[in-house]
Amino acid sequence: MKYLRYIFWTLLTVITGCSVVVEEGNDASESNTITFENVFPNSLIDANTYLLGGGNRTWTTVAFTIEGVNGFQNCRLDDEIRLNEDNTYAYDGGTMLCGAEDNQKIKSGTWEIDAPSRTLTFDKGLDHESIMYIESLTSEEIVVSSHYYSWKVVGKFTHD
């Protein structure tokens, strides 16, 4: 029973914590799909170059979806993550936090990329480790996916 209450409150927090934004020109049934090319650099050196741009690079969320929820989650659209050459990161959750685990505006830690498996891991070995599959990585954008409980989550990021 305690577990069911936990699931209920988690669902309630996720669903009410983020309102849905429908992209202009799309109806709600189509707006939960992020479009991208399935591309990945040929080498780890190229992947790091794309991620860091020859220095430190800040990536801004431009789209974020949760499987089964129509529309983009606007509480993520002001999020930024700065990846540093020393494999540390600084995450800024923006002014609109989504709730649940997204309860801190600023987070920091370490990151690493594994090119053969196309994964980006944050805070490896810690209890809050997060592994993202890199759906696409170009010099202009990165699209990553993961799972939140059983829901697939996809985020698309660009930089200036």
Rank of each mutant, 00 (worst) to 15 (best):
L126A: 07
W9Q: 09
F8N: 07
K152Q: 14
Y50D: 04
G25E: 04
N70T: 09
H147K: 14
Q73T: 13
V154W: 02
I106T: 05
D79A: 09
T58P: 07
F122V: 00
E135D: 13
D27F: 10
V39K: 10
H159D: 04
W151G: 09
E101L: 10
K124I: 03
M96L: 12
I7S: 06
V143K: 00
S19G: 01
I142A: 04
G54P: 07
L137Q: 01
D114F: 08
F122M: 00
V154H: 05
N103P: 04
D27E: 12
K124L: 03
L126S: 13
K156R: 14
D123H: 01
N48D: 11
T158I: 14
V22I: 14
T138E: 05
N84G: 05
V153I: 15
N70Y: 09
N74G: 08
A47G: 10
E37R: 05
L77M: 08
V143A: 02
Y50W: 04
V62L: 01
E23D: 15
G99S: 12
Y91D: 05
F36M: 03
E67R: 10
E30W: 05
T95K: 08
E101C: 02
S130Y: 02
T10D: 07
W59H: 02
Y133L: 14
T10H: 09
I66M: 15
L12D: 09
T88F: 03
S29N: 11
Y3R: 07
N26Y: 13
G71M: 02
C18L: 07
L83R: 02
D92P: 03
A63H: 00
V144R: 01
D79L: 05
G68E: 03
S31D: 13
Q104C: 08
Y50I: 03
V143G: 02
A90E: 12
E24N: 14
F64C: 01
C98I: 06
T60L: 06
Y3I: 10
G68H: 04
D160Y: 11
I34R: 03
W59M: 04
T60E: 09
C18V: 08
G125T: 05
E37C: 01
F122L: 06
L44A: 12
L12M: 13
S136N: 11
G55D: 13
D102A: 14
E67I: 08
V69D: 05
G99V: 11
G71W: 02
G17A: 09
S146Y: 05
S145D: 06
S29K: 11
E129S: 00
A47N: 06
Y89R: 01
E141A: 07
N103G: 10
T35H: 14
M1T: 10
T95F: 05
L44E: 14
S145R: 09
K156M: 03
T35F: 11
E141N: 10
H159R: 07
C75Q: 05
T10E: 12
V21Q: 11
S29D: 12
F72M: 15
A28I: 12
S150P: 03
F64S: 03
S43Q: 01
C75H: 02
I66F: 14
D127K: 05
T121Q: 02
N26Q: 15
V21S: 07
G155S: 12
G53F: 06
N48L: 15
S146V: 00
S19T: 11
